[in-house]
Design a protein around this nucleic acid. Structure first.
Lengths: 204, 204
DNA sequence: GGCTATCTATACGGTCCGTTCCGTAGCGTC
DNA sequence: GACGCTACGGAACGGACCGTATAGATAGCC
């Protein structure tokens, strides 16, 4: 774990980089959010605190990189299929399985918690992490509107708030079990409400 | 603020009680979650830390009492009306206005954050605070099912996850503006989906 | 060969944690 | 009126963590 790792010269040491992310991930998995301190990560990684602060300005930034690394390992890009509703269902259920089956769920919970204390973490969360997912989901919804699967002007914001909201709500209250099975009905509810004449079909 | 407050004998001093809650509330409003420490609350309240720990075993418990006190001041009990959907809409929008217009929103954000670090806080949040609101909402939904407003066996869990989830999601990402106006559509979407033949109408 | 950037290690002053002990004070009881 | 009980505030404790500063060793880059 520690194994005498030092500077390799003028360039960033990828082993140090990986060791720090590994340590953060392990602490997260073993002791949860409360177990992750910059101090503890440094200790476990056999790294110096200044090295952590050099590369990650805050705990939130570190947690976010842990999350993104997991994501790049575990989550494949989704191909658009015939039915937008199925695409969004797949998008959301695979996110939930990802939360359940990897340390990412714990990381995400921690980032949300951190965002309630640190305005910078909130901006990072909302404007960096979430923006991409929301853009993907919005694209799927707008595709559905174009093909006539739902009304031409759906309330995409409300649809996403319902769907992602339900997922967050269950993650943050530690009720993720069964959520992947529940989400298809919730996505279906959002789509049903967005059909012409439904409460999420906007005029104009 | 501090004014020489001491023991009043064998009994709990209500002034001390109030001063501590006031201090916590003020710190929450002024500096957010990060500004609330047991130490700072005690300092500001002119109280001793042992007094805090005597009455509140954790920061989460203290925050929760701040929340409940605000709630008892600001929120009236709702009378059941003719239409269950309107009742639930009113229930949820008044909760959101309460979050926006009082320090309670900040308190609630803090409790959720705390629950990601402390398992005890999570239990308190889920099994004490949320259980009541969910029971109220479930009662409204089941009333709707009995009157035929929706199908006889609605997926009440999914409906509540959608509705409360959307509210949480927007609170925790600091997007509460406009949420009270959005919620009627979301509640309507849940109810629409729970009508016979809809995706949230369960068989049996 | 000199410059530069990285890395570990250590130490610093600071805040907060949760607890302990102390002296003071008033309620309720005998 | 004396006494026990409990509440209160103050001070201090050891410990953890914060974020930063300094120093010295290493090795790539020009």
């Amino acid at each position: 774990m520690t194994s005498a790792r030092a500077s390799i010269g003028n360039t960033r040491n990828p082993e140090t980089h990986a060791a720090i992310l590994d340590a953060a991930e392990a602490l997260l998995a073993e002791h949860g959010y409360a177990g992750v301190s910059m101090e503890a990560v440094a200790r476990r990684a056999g790294a110096g605190k200044p090295t952590l602060y050099r590369w990650w300005p805050s705990k939130a930034a570190l947690l976010m990189e842990v999350y993104e690394r997991q994501k790049s390992l575990a989550l494949a890009e989704l191909e658009p299929g015939a039915c937008a509703q199925d695409d969004l269902t797949e998008f959301v259920t695979s996110m939930i399985r990802f939360w359940r089956e990897t340390p990412a769920g714990q990381a995400f919970r921690s980032i949300v918690a951190e965002a309630q204390a640190e305005p910078a973490a909130l901006r990072l969360l909302r404007d960096e992490m979430l923006a991409r997912g929301r853009a993907n989901a919005a694209a799927i919804i707008h595709r559905a509107a174009e093909t006539g699967e739902i009304a031409p002007h759906p309330d995409a914001e409300a649809m996403m708030d319902m769907i992602f909201g339900a997922a967050w709500y269950r993650l943050l209250t530690h009720r993720l079990r069964g959520t992947a099975e529940e989400m298809p009905r919730i996505v279906a509810a959002a789509f049903a409400a967005a059909r012409p004449g439904g409460p999420l079909a906007l005029p104009g």
